[in-house]
Design a protein around this nucleic acid. Structure first.
Length: 323
DNA sequence: CGGGTTTGACCAGCGC
DNA sequence: GCGCTGGTCAAACCCG
């Protein structure tokens, strides 16, 4: 376990906050949090997402990521980190090319790809390369297993299991989790055509901590319109429309930022956290690489993140600080 | 009655 | 090959 990661993830004393998100990405076995809150025992060794757990990722986390959540005060935010981006494609070297990510050691494949298409494409390749002899079986699960969407998870101190993130979810399953007295719930976005899923579970040894894992990317806008007006960021900061919500700047691979998604939007302050304006239409063609920027908060395709995290959450604080 | 939840069963992947 | 586990399905059930 990389100490830097520990510091990044846990160093902020989760015990201090009610809602202290610890963000990471890709699926992770809940059992891997056994040592929480002392140590984040990320299963980097053998986990399929090992690539994302590489030291490079940690470098990323510690490379000046200055995520600032305007809600931090509301939720007593004490710990935020960039996600350990990963994906099924993260283990595929080409993935970095797919997303225009410089194959620099420091950038690594942390942001393995910028869109689901790339991920699926990679997955497709693997499927083609490894034709299952049992592909005659029920197709319903055959492909699902492979075509995994990018995942993002975060931990939240909350009594509520299913935190309202503005989307409508339908619970489609619940499973007992090994080494955990708390079951894991499976939710699926109820919007037609939107295959976003999320899993919710509690840490085995910290029932106050909810681990939510999002998988996929919403293809629609949140059905819940936040109260208050939607503020649009200065274009000088981010061209929201051109990226269709993707805080994606190929030129700033190490500029990662991740903010705690949904829970923070609803628990206390939808009114203060409008959703990202018109950021949902699927992002077909990759936007032209914006000019190099020193902006601290850039984000590759984070799947739901781009949908869930209001841009202002990343920008406003900076602006406020500046002003 | 429609939509969401519960829950047992089924299936695939993986480790031994 | 077998058992374990995670993920999903779908029928039954619940609720507004």
């Amino acid at each position: 376990m990389d100490k830097k990661l520990e510091d990044t993830m846990m160093g902020s004393e989760n015990s201090a906050g009610k809602y202290s998100p610890v963000v990471f990405s890709d699926e992770f076995p809940a059992t891997s949090f056994g040592s929480y809150p002392g140590v984040f025992d990320m299963p980097c060794d053998d986990h399929k997402a090992a690539a994302s757990c590489s030291s490079n990722s940690f470098d990323l986390l510690g490379s000046g990521i200055d995520f600032y959540n305007p809600l931090s005060s509301l939720f007593d935010l004490v710990s935020t980190t960039a996600p350990l981006l990963s994906s099924p494609a993260s283990t595929v070297p080409e993935s970095s090319e797919v997303v225009n990510a410089p194959p620099t050691p420091n950038s690594s494949s942390v942001s393995s790809y910028s869109n689901d298409a790339a991920a699926i494409e990679e997955v497709d390749k693997s499927n083609t390369e490894k034709p299952s002899s049992s592909n005659v079986l029920k197709p319903k699960k055959k492909n699902q297993k492979k075509q995994r969407e990018p995942r993002f998870a975060f931990m939240t101190k909350s009594d509520i299991d299913h935190l309202d993130d503005g989307y409508r979810w339908r619970k489609y399953g619940q499973k007992a989790v090994k080494n955990s007295p708390y079951p894991r719930s499976y939710y699926r976005c109820t919007t037609v055509g939107c295959g976003v899923k999320k899993r919710v579970e509690r840490l085995s040894n910290d029932q106050s901590t909810v681990v939510t894992t999002y998988e996929g990317q919403h293809t629609h806008q949140s059905p819940i319109i936040p109260r208050g007006s939607i503020r649009v960021l200065p274009e000088s900061n981010l061209d929201v429309t051109s990226t269709t919500g993707l805080l994606f700047q190929p030129n700033t691979p190490q500029s990662f930022m991740y903010s705690p998604p949904p829970p923070f939007l609803t628990i206390n302050s939808l009114s203060t956290n409008p959703r990202p304006p018109s950021s949902f239409p699927p992002p077909p063609p990759p936007p032209p690489p914006p000019p190099p920027s020193s902006q601290a908060f850039m984000l590759r395709d984070h799947g739901l993140l781009q949908d869930l995290v209001p841009l202002q959450m990343r920008k406003e604080p900076k602006d406020e600080q500046n002003g």
